[in-house]
Design a protein around this nucleic acid. Structure first.
Lengths: 130, 130
DNA sequence: CAGAATCCGCTTGGATACTG
DNA sequence: CAGTATCCAAGCGGATTCTG
């Protein structure tokens, strides 16, 4: 769980050891649960892409955001970054095993989006109509 | 798919009709793929929670962010908001069917986080050590 | 209690220019 | 080509105050 339970809410019982893992989990979740990171993971998929290819595939992402999020994903071990010492340089990105595992759930989110596209659109119209 | 395919990248073939649905999908994805929205969905789960309860369960969320994201989720039809005309007012939040469906995949993300917690921590240490 | 609204710091993220 | 650095605008998000 990433969220707190309601029961024993008033009780402050020895949280010392749990807290570390929990705050780490929250930190990771915050890193991951962001638009660009998830889109990049989806974009890579089971392919091997270069920087510019990624830039083209993930529509609308800026140069800066791409590098920034790639570093983030690399740091968390979701993405592999291999540099070919050629000139001009050639850098390729691949999902690691954890990355692929996460990708599976992201796929679920994408499926969900398309599955409920119509429902969401009507919900919006209802909400927006004064 | 939310991301673009690489094949036929040079080709600009009649995208008029696809584009609408795609941009909508992207818009929805952006709404959903954000830290607070996902945490709120996880927090509600299959329960019925009041505003302040939610505020307590989703640790670290501010009053403003909570209302803001609740509106967003409500607008997209992921959450039901029922107002009991009492005094003081009592407002309860529940997941709708689309909301519950999405929750399933968010659960997957949470599981993933805990499953790979250790791997991520070591990946970070390796990355951070100069 | 739920939430709308205002103020405001400061992070986010885009555009641009510069290295190897 | 890939990446870093800088500048700067826009919006995110927190704290606070005010209603019904």
């Amino acid at each position: 769980m990433v969220t707190k339970q309601l029961k024993d809410s008033g009780q402050a019982r020895d949280e010392a050891d749990v807290t570390r893992a929990d705050s780490l989990a929250r930190e990771i979740f915050s890193d991951i649960a962001n638009k660009w990171a998830l889109l990049i993971i989806e974009a890579v998929g089971d392919r091997t892409l270069r920087f510019t290819e990624l830039r083209d595939v993930v529509e609308g992402i800026s140069h800066k955001m791409l590098t920034q999020n790639l570093r983030l994903l690399e740091r968390n071990g979701l993405i592999d970054r291999t540099v070919h010492p050629t000139v001009p340089p050639r850098v390729e990105y691949t999902l690691t095993e954890p990355g692929r595992a996460l990708r599976a759930t992201v796929d679920g989110m994408c499926d969900w989006t398309h599955r409920y596209l119509a429902d969401i659109e009507t919900a919006r119209q209802r909400f927006d109509s004064p």
